[in-house]
Design a protein around this nucleic acid. Sequence first.
DNA 1: CGAATAATTCATCACCCGGTGAATTTTTTG
DNA 2: CAAAAAATTCACCGGGTGATGAATTATTCG
Lengths: 245, 245
Amino acid sequence: MDMKVGRLRASGPKRKRGPGRPQKSANGDDARERILDAAENLFAHHGLDAVSVRDVARKAHVDTALVHYYFATKRGVFDAVFQRRAAILNKERIAMIDAYEAAPGPGGVTVEGLIEAFLSPLFDASVKGGPKWKDYFALIAQVNNNPDWGGETMARFFDPVIRHLIAALRRALPSARDEDLFWSYHFLSGALTLTFAQTGRIDLLSDGLCKSTDFAAASARLSRYIAAGFEAVCVSRSIVRKRTK
Amino acid sequence: MDMKVGRLRASGPKRKRGPGRPQKSANGDDARERILDAAENLFAHHGLDAVSVRDVARKAHVDTALVHYYFATKRGVFDAVFQRRAAILNKERIAMIDAYEAAPGPGGVTVEGLIEAFLSPLFDASVKGGPKWKDYFALIAQVNNNPDWGGETMARFFDPVIRHLIAALRRALPSARDEDLFWSYHFLSGALTLTFAQTGRIDLLSDGLCKSTDFAAASARLSRYIAAGFEAVCVSRSIVRKRTK
DNA sequence: CGAATAATTCATCACCCGGTGAATTTTTTG
DNA sequence: CAAAAAATTCACCGGGTGATGAATTATTCG
């Protein structure tokens, strides 16, 4: 009986910098990068399961075998796409929160200020960063709402930043309960990711008055909306809470 | 030349009540119903594209051909699942909004009261209605965040109720702009559907303090959270708006 | 140049997919 | 009971899927 023998080929070549490099290196037109871009775009717009490795390869003008050469498996492609922009983003977001806490406006640290610091790198990237960043955020929206492996994946990449935000919120709202903070963040997460998902939903609902792609409009409202939600839920209402619980 | 001839077989049998009925009819154990239940569960937990017709048939203890006999295509199965509970739900939600507007508490109609009327049939069904209803709501979460056809599908089934809610909110907040109302609803929609998606995300983030399955806890917070968001965004701040716009 | 190494392609495998037409079985009707 | 109709199964098709090993091309290094 021949059991399925595990793949021996490692996940891609040894990445030493020197020898045998591809056509272009300083340029962003490596085949590897093209594959990631193609996958990012397709996964974001159609979901992981609706896109085949062949689709990705075709869009990247590359043979399917090359995709497996670099990333071993389809899930490997996905992970690489997901990871590529996460690190940059997370560093910025933590820096923004810290900077705001170190020098808030007159009146001190507010919930809205913290939320805005937490969100601004995302909206900045999606507005100024070009379509690839928009694709990336749409991809995150997909993952965040995936019931299979979404929760685990999001936790792996984004929990540090989020815990950082929640710690800061805890300082800004000393009377808040942790459950209230976590649920409030959960609602924020849902509102944010649906906005990033660009489903065209709001376009249809509003008969064209609002556009899914108009992140500036979303950004102008979201921080205020969410901050008000946090304050309404997290600021001492223990009497009411006991009644509803 | 033989062009692909359209399917001649109609989408299922003639549904007259009399002849040739299956094993059980009054009971909910029809094969047709079993297929819908199986599909509902699988689509909700894994997404439409990750589930095959064979998976559904296997779970329903039925041949794949029977699935096509009743629903013609995989998408047909999905539509039937989606539609099955939508009508019931929408009728209840409109009734709740109307009832609340007709007899609000002392102090008149509030945003929180409207939101709660709008949401309560959902949480009621998911808490009291058993696991099939939870599956259904998880399925809605999938659809709402699907960038391909989610926006259009949600619009087709739920826009009437939502427009009804927004009309009521417009009466409760006469100074609100429509863009603000639509964006505010959009955020509500995202927060709600991520909650229904049951991704386990909040469980991991909170180290088990909060549970994705605890709809009672979510329900206890969501209306207040969202109402505060609506009021913060939609109540006259035209001076500020002009600056950010 | 020529050897070494990385990048890329080619041909292919075993399997799963959605869907269909023709039997076959079950149920209802007269 | 027989005839009719509905429900269900069986066998199958064409095509797509993720993945792989061997061959081929491009690049770098000595």
